[in-house]
Design a protein around this nucleic acid. Structure first.
Lengths: 195, 195
DNA sequence: GTCTATACGATGATAGAC
DNA sequence: GTCTATCATCGTATAGAC
């Protein structure tokens, strides 16, 4: 990838994160890069293509990272901890891209949308397999696998929406809080209210 | 509120939910209402005003509902259960409006943005007070109140993004799953991983 | 690879008749 | 209250020179 192409991507990530995809114009991006807007089209065929590239890289990296993190044959609760930690760390370290990937699906064309959703589904199915395995061997309580996978992933992803890199808590602290909360829910989540 | 004004709001909710605020044009709304686009401006001064009205009503109703649900002086874990259940039910029963209120803050003007965020902050602070109370009297484990309030609210809100009214699970089932999962996390969320 | 210039469409909003 | 007509603006994208 050429230097300017990388600059355009990087500036676009900043702007899409700051103002949103629709509110960001090609002129804005060009201004940020210090070139004319027509020059953008030498590197990317359209604004939508730019959005797709950003999302595509992000989601591919996310799926690869999760797979790598799960190669160890640990007990199921330990594997779930690793998965949660990996997810949270990725979403906080690459906050802007993940924010975009989770909030700008609307901007994609039909085919690109399908492509990103396919990656997301692949990712979710890995989490669902973990939950199912833990439930089936008794490590986790009986739960609805799909609902809980949405809940867990959404909870962990939400950090990308409010996390402040210079703030009070470090990434590892936040990851640990989420990890413990989720494991507690998976191990005890059917407690009934006192009558 | 006149009949046409209500129609415009209702059609706008449908379209903002379906296509997003930015991708929905005044022409789209007018077509949906069976009138000309100029006529919209008799009822609302701008497209942004329309978005604000929708968000404002939704958030006000949400805050009122939560306050009403907590008038009973139950034990803290019971009150938290009620709060979670109320939140989930509201978000699933009024799915479209809540989806909009959570995903289209970008479309608001400065002042309107501040107004909506103030309501959201008020709402969050009620949840934070519940968590803090439970933590201080030992019903919940020691936790970071702010982080956990974001996590819990985001988890519960996420239902508005994937819930399918005609689907497999009823609102009450989903609310019960979330409720139990969250209470388990609050009561056991500092379990450490086995070493 | 980047520039200037421009085509072309769509959009939010207004004016004024009925 | 709703209409027709229209404005001004801005958006993405392309053509062709350098």
């Amino acid at each position: 990838m050429t230097r300017m192409k990388e600059t355009i991507q990087s500036i676009s990530i900043d702007l899409f994160y700051q103002k949103g995809y629709f509110a960001t114009s090609i002129s804005d991006i060009a201004r940020g890069c210090g070139i004319q807007k027509a020059s953008i089209y030498y590197h990317f065929s359209s604004k939508e293509e730019l959005l797709f590239q950003i999302m595509s890289h992000t989601m591919s990296d996310l799926v690869s990272l999760l797979k790598e993190s799960l190669v160890q044959a640990d007990p199921i609760d330990q594997r779930m901890r690793v998965a949660v930690r990996t997810h949270v760390q990725f979403h906080l370290h690459r906050q802007k891209e993940n924010f975009i990937a989770n909030s700008e699906l609307r901007g994609l064309s039909e085919e690109h949308y399908r492509s990103i959703v396919a990656l997301r589904d692949e990712y979710e199915s890995i989490f669902q397999a973990l939950i199912r395995e833990g439930r089936d061997n008794g490590a986790f309580v009986a739960v609805d696998v799909r609902i809980l996978s949405y809940a867990i992933l959404n909870l962990c992803t939400s950090g990308a929406f409010w996390y402040n890199p210079g703030g009070r808590l470090a990434v590892e602290d936040i990851a640990a809080i989420y990890e413990n909360f989720i494991i507690a829910g998976l191990q005890n989540g059917t407690l009934r209210p006192p009558v």
